[in-house]
């Protein structure tokens, strides 16, 4: 069969199948619905990604771990070691899913992938931070979780936010019970009823100003413990 004959045969076969009704066009509404479905699912994934970023922000804020960023290089290293990488990885997977779904749109596939991913990460993180810091949404859910008012999976998620402070890594949370020059007394209660629960003397880092502290303040301390004394390299008061 030569090329011309092959061509005619292909055309004829396809046209015959069209005329017989074997092949039909998908209606225009199918394509509109497909685009709408993609956009709606993409929006939901984006919102979920923003929510997850805001939850990470809430986690770091409520546990006080974000304070480590201001505690010098040692604090920074510790911050990265206790960062909730599992949630962050899940967020990145959501962003990858979002990029994959939006790849059908010209404005996305014509833009370098790295650029799109960077934009989504920056936008998602900024929106998540803003949502957490401005709305108080997670704080309300946290209180509801403490009162046992949330459905089980969400309840567990919030309950797991504030576990015992990682004392083995030199992080302590407690309440100020007494203040002296350059040092203060702190009750350390990590709810595990072990030998380290009690009152500790916290020696502040050099230049530490105790005048900013009040009795009853909740504090986040990073330092090295020796007996009943903590030699702190970073101290910060917490909101709750």
């Amino acid at each position: 069969m030569n090329d011309q004959t092959k061509q005619s045969a292909t055309e004829e076969t396809v046209l015959e199948r069209i005329r017989s009704g074997e092949i039909t066009m998908r209606p225009g509404s199918f394509f509109i619905a497909k685009v709408l479905f993609t956009l709606v699912v993409s929006l939901l994934v984006l919102l979920l990604s923003i929510w997850l970023a805001s939850f990470i922000s809430f986690d770091l804020r409520i546990t006080g771990h974000e304070s480590l960023l201001g505690f010098g290089s040692r604090g920074l290293a510790l911050f990265f070691s206790i960062f909730p990488w599992g949630l962050a990885t899940l967020d990145l997977i959501l962003i990858a899913l979002l990029v994959w779904m939006l790849q059908h749109f010209r404005f996305v596939y014509r833009t370098p992938l790295l650029f799109i991913i960077a934009i989504l990460i920056v936008f998602g993180t900024a929106s998540g931070l803003l949502f957490d810091r401005e709305t108080g949404f997670h704080d309300d859910r946290f209180e509801e979780a403490e009162a046992g008012e949330l459905p089980i999976p969400i309840q567990e998620l919030y309950e797991n936010v504030l576990p015992t402070a990682p004392e083995d890594q030199g992080i302590y949370r407690g309440y100020v019970t007494g203040i002296v020059s350059g040092a203060f007394l702190m009750t350390y209660d990590d709810n595990d009823h072990d030998e380290d629960d009690g009152t500790w003397i916290v020696m502040g880092p050099s230049g530490f100003d105790t005048s900013a502290l009040r009795i009853g303040d909740k504090v986040y301390v990073a330092g090295d413990r020796d007996g009943k004394t903590i030699e702190a390299y970073g101290v910060r008061t917490l909101a709750r």
Binding site: T10, T13, V14, R26
Partner: peptide, 18 residues
């Protein structure tokens, strides 16, 4: 290739409204 091209045309016709 001819068979694949035929399938392509079938797909084109099915999706032409898109």
């Amino acid at each position: 290739v001819e068979d694949i091209v035929q399938d392509i045309f079938v797909n084109v016709y099915r999706n032409i409204k898109g």
